[in-house]
């Protein structure tokens, strides 16, 4: 398997694994979002959705492990790329002209990624651990919706959530089209379409996720 080692550790290999894990996470986000949007259906629907997931717990566990692995590769690889890429230019320019030749979100994948990672940890601690009754925070019998609603009533928590979703949108906007470039799937006809789809998807994901805390904070909370 030395060829795989060579491949995985080559500059293109590392990119490829960033891309594969990235696109997997994009797909995961879609399912996650569909589940979350059921919150708008009210307590009954959302609680049923979660209960249904409870009923297939072993499968969910497997998916979670796979997902965790994907996340870890994406993060580990990302940090490694960041460190290596810093080393490739030991002395920085006195004048930075990068705003004239590239977009800010393409240059800040590591930064947006890091903040999203922090968000992820907090997010897992708040929701995943509570839903699974791990640790001190417990949830009353099947009152998932109520838990979510009360959590988002905290303006600081919701504010950070919305901020992280904006960064996620920027991260995805670059990541989405980047995956196609990395895989070598570019074409004069289709690449512009992919770029547009990527941007629309990123905006949609960011707005849709962010709409939940906003909904609970302002609309539900305002009642």
């Amino acid at each position: 398997m030395s060829w795989f080692n060579t491949f995985f550790n080559s500059s293109i290999g590392k990119k490829l694994f960033m891309g594969i894990t990235g696109i997997s996470l994009i797909l995961f986000l879609k399912f996650h979002l569909i589940n979350n949007l059921s919150l708008f259906g009210g307590p009954e629907i959302f609680n049923t959705v979660v209960k249904n997931l409870e009923s297939i717990k072993p499968l969910v566990r497997v998916i979670e492990v796979v997902l965790a692995l994907i996340f870890l590769i994406h993060i580990f690889n990302g940090i490694r790329l960041w460190i290596e890429n810093k080393k490739a230019r030991p002395v920085k320019y006195a004048v930075n002209g990068s705003s004239k030749n590239s977009t800010i979100y393409s240059r800040t994948m590591a930064q947006t990624g890091s903040i999203i990672f922090i968000f992820l940890v907090i997010h897992l601690r708040t929701f995943w651990m509570s839903f699974n009754s791990i640790g001190v925070v417990g949830i009353e019998e099947h009152k998932y919706y109520e838990f979510v609603a009360s959590t988002f009533l905290d303006p600081i928590y919701s504010g950070f959530y919305v901020f992280a979703m904006i960064l996620l949108g920027l991260h995805l906007n670059h990541g989405f089209q980047s995956v196609f470039q990395t895989f070598g799937w570019t074409h004069k006809k289709y690449t512009p379409i992919i770029n547009v789809i990527g941007t629309i998807y990123s905006i949609f994901v960011a707005i849709a996720f962010a709409s939940i805390p906003i909904y609970f904070l302002f609309i539900q909370g305002g009642k």
Partner: peptide, 26 residues
């Protein structure tokens, strides 16, 4: 370093070499 698809290279290339070449190489 590795490519992170910022495409600054194409923007600054005096001959306008396209990043589609990078995709082809990938």
């Amino acid at each position: 370093g590795s490519c992170t698809n910022t495409y600054a290279c194409e923007a600054e290339c005096p001959k306008g070499i396209s990043v589609t070449n990078i995709a082809r190489m990938n």
